[in-house]
Protein backbone atom coordinates (compact mmCIF):
# COMPACT_ATOMS: atom_id res chain seq x y z
CA UNK A 1 0.00 0.00 0.00
CA UNK A 2 2.61 2.52 1.04
CA UNK A 3 4.87 3.81 -1.63
CA UNK A 4 7.60 4.45 0.91
CA UNK A 5 8.18 5.56 4.47
CA UNK A 6 8.03 9.28 3.76
CA UNK A 7 4.34 9.44 2.87
CA UNK A 8 2.64 9.02 6.23
CA UNK A 9 2.55 12.73 6.99
CA UNK A 10 2.49 15.59 4.61
CA UNK A 11 5.01 17.83 6.31
CA UNK A 12 8.08 15.66 5.79
CA UNK A 13 10.04 15.78 2.58
CA UNK A 14 11.32 12.58 1.08
CA UNK A 15 15.04 12.50 0.31
CA UNK A 16 14.06 13.03 -3.31
CA UNK A 17 12.51 16.36 -2.33
CA UNK A 18 8.92 15.23 -2.70
CA UNK A 19 5.91 15.58 -0.44
CA UNK A 20 4.24 12.26 -1.12
CA UNK A 21 0.82 13.16 0.30
CA UNK A 22 0.71 16.06 -2.11
CA UNK A 23 1.66 13.75 -4.97
CA UNK A 24 -1.15 11.38 -3.99
CA UNK A 25 -3.59 14.28 -3.92
CA UNK A 26 -2.61 15.07 -7.49
CA UNK A 27 -3.39 11.43 -8.32
CA UNK A 28 -6.89 11.93 -6.88
CA UNK A 29 -7.41 14.73 -9.40
CA UNK A 30 -6.37 12.41 -12.22
CA UNK A 31 -9.00 9.89 -11.17
CA UNK A 32 -11.79 12.38 -11.65
CA UNK A 33 -13.32 12.57 -15.11
CA UNK A 34 -11.88 15.11 -17.49
CA UNK A 35 -12.51 18.83 -17.57
CA UNK A 36 -11.38 21.14 -20.36
CA UNK A 37 -11.05 24.91 -20.30
CA UNK A 38 -10.44 27.32 -23.18
CA UNK A 39 -10.29 31.08 -23.49
CA UNK A 40 -10.68 33.53 -26.33
CA UNK A 41 -10.45 37.30 -26.35
CA UNK A 42 -14.12 37.52 -25.43
CA UNK A 43 -15.15 34.22 -23.84
CA UNK A 44 -14.00 31.54 -21.44
CA UNK A 45 -15.58 28.09 -21.57
CA UNK A 46 -15.46 24.87 -19.60
CA UNK A 47 -16.37 21.43 -20.91
CA UNK A 48 -16.70 18.41 -18.67
CA UNK A 49 -17.38 14.73 -18.97
CA UNK A 50 -19.95 13.66 -16.42
CA UNK A 51 -19.97 10.18 -14.91
CA UNK A 52 -22.68 8.37 -13.08
CA UNK A 53 -21.79 6.05 -10.22
CA UNK A 54 -24.16 3.40 -11.51
CA UNK A 55 -27.12 2.72 -13.70
CA UNK A 56 -29.51 3.93 -11.01
CA UNK A 57 -27.55 7.07 -10.25
CA UNK A 58 -27.74 10.46 -11.88
CA UNK A 59 -24.71 11.95 -13.57
CA UNK A 60 -22.46 13.75 -11.13
CA UNK A 61 -22.42 17.48 -11.78
CA UNK A 62 -18.97 18.92 -12.33
CA UNK A 63 -19.67 22.60 -12.94
CA UNK A 64 -20.27 25.01 -10.07
CA UNK A 65 -21.32 28.64 -10.23
CA UNK A 66 -19.39 30.87 -7.84
CA UNK A 67 -20.76 34.25 -8.81
CA UNK A 68 -22.20 35.94 -11.89
CA UNK A 69 -18.70 36.28 -13.27
CA UNK A 70 -16.90 33.18 -11.94
CA UNK A 71 -17.47 29.43 -12.22
CA UNK A 72 -15.43 26.26 -11.83
CA UNK A 73 -15.11 22.76 -13.23
CA UNK A 74 -13.95 20.11 -10.80
CA UNK A 75 -11.98 16.89 -11.05
CA UNK A 76 -11.38 14.72 -7.99
CA UNK A 77 -13.18 14.51 -4.67
CA UNK A 78 -16.58 16.11 -5.02
CA UNK A 79 -16.89 16.76 -1.29
CA UNK A 80 -13.61 18.67 -1.15
CA UNK A 81 -14.82 20.66 -4.14
CA UNK A 82 -17.94 21.63 -2.25
CA UNK A 83 -15.92 23.02 0.64
CA UNK A 84 -13.60 24.95 -1.64
CA UNK A 85 -16.29 26.32 -3.91
CA UNK A 86 -18.25 27.45 -0.88
CA UNK A 87 -15.17 29.32 0.29
CA UNK A 88 -14.90 30.94 -3.15
CA UNK A 89 -18.55 31.99 -2.94
CA UNK A 90 -17.88 33.59 0.43
CA UNK A 91 -14.90 35.48 -0.95
CA UNK A 92 -16.93 36.65 -3.92
CA UNK A 93 -19.78 37.74 -1.67
CA UNK A 94 -17.48 39.55 0.69
CA UNK A 95 -15.93 41.53 -2.18
CA UNK A 96 -19.38 42.50 -3.38
CA UNK A 97 -20.52 43.47 0.11
CA UNK A 98 -17.45 45.41 1.18
CA UNK A 99 -16.34 47.13 -2.02
CA UNK A 100 -19.34 46.70 -4.29
CA UNK A 101 -16.86 45.10 -6.69
CA UNK A 102 -17.09 41.67 -8.34
CA UNK A 103 -14.04 39.86 -7.03
CA UNK A 104 -11.10 39.88 -9.47
CA UNK A 105 -10.81 36.33 -10.80
CA UNK A 106 -7.10 36.00 -10.04
CA UNK A 107 -7.73 36.87 -6.39
CA UNK A 108 -10.47 34.36 -5.74
CA UNK A 109 -8.27 31.64 -7.27
CA UNK A 110 -5.27 32.78 -5.25
CA UNK A 111 -7.53 32.57 -2.19
CA UNK A 112 -8.10 28.82 -2.52
CA UNK A 113 -4.52 28.23 -3.59
CA UNK A 114 -3.32 29.81 -0.35
CA UNK A 115 -5.73 27.63 1.61
CA UNK A 116 -4.49 24.53 -0.16
CA UNK A 117 -0.91 25.51 0.48
CA UNK A 118 -1.40 25.68 4.26
CA UNK A 119 -2.64 22.08 4.09
CA UNK A 120 0.74 21.05 2.73
CA UNK A 121 2.65 22.61 5.57
CA UNK A 122 0.71 21.77 8.72
CA UNK A 123 0.99 18.54 10.62
CA UNK A 124 -2.20 16.51 10.87
CA UNK A 125 -3.87 17.96 7.80
CA UNK A 126 -4.34 16.51 4.38
CA UNK A 127 -4.20 18.24 1.02
CA UNK A 128 -7.45 18.79 -0.87
CA UNK A 129 -8.14 15.92 -3.25
CA UNK A 130 -9.59 18.06 -6.00
CA UNK A 131 -8.42 20.21 -8.86
CA UNK A 132 -10.32 23.12 -10.41
CA UNK A 133 -10.44 24.81 -13.73
CA UNK A 134 -11.71 28.30 -12.98
CA UNK A 135 -13.18 30.59 -15.62
CA UNK A 136 -14.12 34.16 -14.98
CA UNK A 137 -14.42 37.62 -16.39
CA UNK A 138 -13.37 40.85 -14.72
CA UNK A 139 -12.11 44.30 -15.64
CA UNK A 140 -9.05 42.71 -17.22
CA UNK A 141 -11.11 40.46 -19.51
CA UNK A 142 -11.87 36.73 -19.59
CA UNK A 143 -9.60 34.31 -17.73
CA UNK A 144 -8.88 30.62 -17.31
CA UNK A 145 -6.98 29.34 -14.27
CA UNK A 146 -6.03 25.93 -12.98
CA UNK A 147 -6.01 25.34 -9.25
CA UNK A 148 -4.30 22.22 -7.96
CA UNK A 149 -4.07 20.60 -4.50
CA UNK A 150 -0.38 21.45 -4.32
CA UNK A 151 -1.45 25.06 -3.75
CA UNK A 152 -0.63 26.44 -7.16
CA UNK A 153 -2.81 28.59 -9.41
CA UNK A 154 -1.70 29.22 -12.98
CA UNK A 155 -3.36 31.02 -15.83
CA UNK A 156 -3.79 29.27 -19.20
CA UNK A 157 -4.98 29.90 -22.74
CA UNK A 158 -6.38 26.37 -22.66
CA UNK A 159 -5.98 23.54 -20.21
CA UNK A 160 -7.31 20.15 -19.16
CA UNK A 161 -7.40 18.20 -15.90
CA UNK A 162 -8.72 14.80 -14.83
CA UNK A 163 -8.62 11.33 -16.33
CA UNK A 164 -6.79 11.00 -19.64
CA UNK A 165 -6.43 14.76 -19.79
CA UNK A 166 -3.05 14.43 -21.52
CA UNK A 167 -4.81 13.48 -24.74
CA UNK A 168 -6.87 16.63 -24.55
CA UNK A 169 -3.78 18.64 -23.76
CA UNK A 170 -2.12 17.32 -26.89
CA UNK A 171 -5.06 18.54 -28.95
CA UNK A 172 -5.12 21.92 -27.21
CA UNK A 173 -1.40 22.46 -27.60
CA UNK A 174 -1.73 21.82 -31.31
CA UNK A 175 -4.57 24.31 -31.74
CA UNK A 176 -4.42 26.95 -28.99
CA UNK A 177 -2.94 29.67 -31.16
CA UNK A 178 -6.25 30.07 -32.99
CA UNK A 179 -8.31 30.33 -29.77
CA UNK A 180 -7.62 34.00 -29.03
CA UNK A 181 -9.53 35.18 -32.09
CA UNK A 182 -12.07 32.33 -32.21
CA UNK A 183 -15.79 32.98 -31.87
CA UNK A 184 -17.82 31.18 -29.22
CA UNK A 185 -19.04 28.40 -31.54
CA UNK A 186 -15.53 27.60 -32.73
CA UNK A 187 -14.15 27.70 -29.21
CA UNK A 188 -16.74 25.18 -28.06
CA UNK A 189 -16.03 22.90 -31.02
CA UNK A 190 -12.35 22.89 -30.13
CA UNK A 191 -13.36 22.11 -26.58
CA UNK A 192 -15.55 19.20 -27.65
CA UNK A 193 -12.76 17.81 -29.82
CA UNK A 194 -10.37 17.98 -26.87
CA UNK A 195 -12.96 16.41 -24.56
CA UNK A 196 -13.59 13.68 -27.10
CA UNK A 197 -9.90 12.79 -27.04
CA UNK A 198 -10.14 11.93 -23.34
CA UNK A 199 -12.72 9.21 -24.02
CA UNK A 200 -11.86 5.57 -24.22
CA UNK A 201 -12.11 3.89 -27.62
CA UNK A 202 -15.70 2.66 -27.38
CA UNK A 203 -17.21 5.77 -25.81
CA UNK A 204 -18.71 8.91 -27.24
CA UNK A 205 -19.82 12.35 -26.26
CA UNK A 206 -23.58 12.44 -25.67
CA UNK A 207 -26.17 14.82 -24.30
CA UNK A 208 -26.10 12.91 -21.04
CA UNK A 209 -22.37 12.97 -20.38
CA UNK A 210 -21.36 16.37 -21.75
CA UNK A 211 -21.85 19.66 -20.00
CA UNK A 212 -20.60 23.07 -21.04
CA UNK A 213 -20.21 26.31 -19.12
CA UNK A 214 -19.73 29.71 -20.72
CA UNK A 215 -18.77 33.18 -19.58
CA UNK A 216 -18.97 36.02 -22.08
CA UNK A 217 -21.44 37.75 -24.39
CA UNK A 218 -24.47 35.64 -25.41
CA UNK A 219 -24.55 33.97 -28.79
CA UNK A 220 -27.78 33.07 -30.58
CA UNK A 221 -25.87 30.57 -32.64
CA UNK A 222 -24.87 28.27 -29.80
CA UNK A 223 -27.27 29.06 -26.97
CA UNK A 224 -30.97 28.90 -26.28
CA UNK A 225 -31.15 32.40 -24.90
CA UNK A 226 -34.84 32.24 -24.09
CA UNK A 227 -34.20 29.68 -21.38
CA UNK A 228 -31.34 31.38 -19.58
CA UNK A 229 -31.29 34.82 -18.01
CA UNK A 230 -27.63 34.34 -17.11
CA UNK A 231 -26.79 33.79 -20.80
CA UNK A 232 -28.60 36.97 -21.82
CA UNK A 233 -26.51 38.89 -19.29
CA UNK A 234 -23.26 37.24 -20.38
CA UNK A 235 -22.84 35.67 -16.93
CA UNK A 236 -21.69 32.18 -16.00
CA UNK A 237 -24.17 29.64 -17.38
CA UNK A 238 -24.23 25.89 -17.70
CA UNK A 239 -25.64 23.98 -20.64
CA UNK A 240 -26.33 20.24 -20.44
CA UNK A 241 -28.76 17.51 -21.53
CA UNK A 242 -31.02 18.63 -24.40
CA UNK A 243 -29.41 22.07 -24.43
CA UNK A 244 -26.10 20.66 -25.72
CA UNK A 245 -27.73 18.56 -28.44
CA UNK A 246 -27.39 21.28 -31.05
CA UNK A 247 -23.76 21.91 -30.10
CA UNK A 248 -22.91 18.21 -30.34
CA UNK A 249 -24.62 17.96 -33.74
CA UNK A 250 -22.78 20.99 -35.06
CA UNK A 251 -19.53 19.56 -33.78
CA UNK A 252 -20.14 16.15 -35.45
CA UNK A 253 -21.04 17.92 -38.68
CA UNK A 254 -17.80 19.85 -38.55
CA UNK A 255 -15.91 16.54 -38.28
CA UNK A 256 -17.81 15.04 -41.16
CA UNK A 257 -19.49 12.48 -38.90
CA UNK A 258 -23.14 11.46 -38.92
CA UNK A 259 -25.02 14.23 -37.15
CA UNK A 260 -26.98 11.84 -34.94
CA UNK A 261 -23.80 10.43 -33.55
CA UNK A 262 -22.71 6.84 -33.19
CA UNK A 263 -25.43 4.24 -32.88
CA UNK A 264 -24.84 3.38 -29.23
CA UNK A 265 -25.72 6.96 -28.34
CA UNK A 266 -29.22 6.51 -29.66
CA UNK A 267 -31.90 6.11 -27.03
CA UNK A 268 -32.22 2.34 -27.50
CA UNK A 269 -28.52 1.80 -27.06
CA UNK A 270 -28.13 4.35 -24.26
CA UNK A 271 -28.04 1.82 -21.38
CA UNK A 272 -25.03 0.04 -22.75
CA UNK A 273 -23.08 3.26 -22.99
CA UNK A 274 -23.99 4.05 -19.42
CA UNK A 275 -23.08 0.59 -18.28
CA UNK A 276 -19.64 0.96 -19.68
CA UNK A 277 -19.26 4.26 -17.87
CA UNK A 278 -20.48 2.97 -14.55
CA UNK A 279 -17.31 0.99 -14.14
CA UNK A 280 -15.05 4.00 -14.52
CA UNK A 281 -17.37 6.05 -12.42
CA UNK A 282 -16.97 4.07 -9.24
CA UNK A 283 -14.37 5.32 -6.80
CA UNK A 284 -13.29 1.77 -6.01
CA UNK A 285 -12.42 0.93 -9.57
CA UNK A 286 -10.57 3.85 -11.05
CA UNK A 287 -9.58 3.49 -14.61
CA UNK A 288 -5.99 2.95 -15.56
CA UNK A 289 -4.07 6.22 -15.42
CA UNK A 290 -3.25 5.87 -19.09
CA UNK A 291 -0.93 8.52 -20.43
CA UNK A 292 -1.75 11.06 -17.74
CA UNK A 293 0.67 13.83 -17.28
CA UNK A 294 2.73 14.29 -14.13
CA UNK A 295 1.28 17.43 -12.67
CA UNK A 296 3.89 18.43 -10.16
CA UNK A 297 6.47 20.93 -11.19
Amino acid sequence: MFRNSYDSDNTTFSPQGKLHQVEYALEAVKQGSAAIGLRSATHAVLLTLKRSTGELATYQKKLIRIDDHVGVAIAGLTSDARVLSNFMRQQAMSSKMLYNRPIPVARVVQGIADRAQTNTQQYGRRPYGVGFLVIGRDETGPHLYEFSPSGTAFEYYAHSIGARSQSAKTYLEKNFESFESADLATLIQHGLSALHDTLQQDKHLSTSNTSIAIIGPPSDEVENLASSGAAKRGNFRVWENDDVDGLLRAWRRSRGEPEDGPKEDEPAAEPSAEQAQSAEGSEQAPEAPGEDVVMSE
Partner: peptide, 8 residues
Protein backbone atom coordinates in the same frame (compact mmCIF):
# COMPACT_ATOMS: atom_id res chain seq x y z
CA UNK B 1 -36.82 46.10 -16.10
CA UNK B 2 -34.39 43.36 -17.05
CA UNK B 3 -35.15 40.07 -15.39
CA UNK B 4 -32.89 39.04 -12.53
CA UNK B 5 -33.53 35.34 -13.05
CA UNK B 6 -34.40 33.33 -16.15
CA UNK B 7 -36.77 35.99 -17.43
CA UNK B 8 -39.52 33.62 -18.50
Amino acid sequence: LDALGEGD
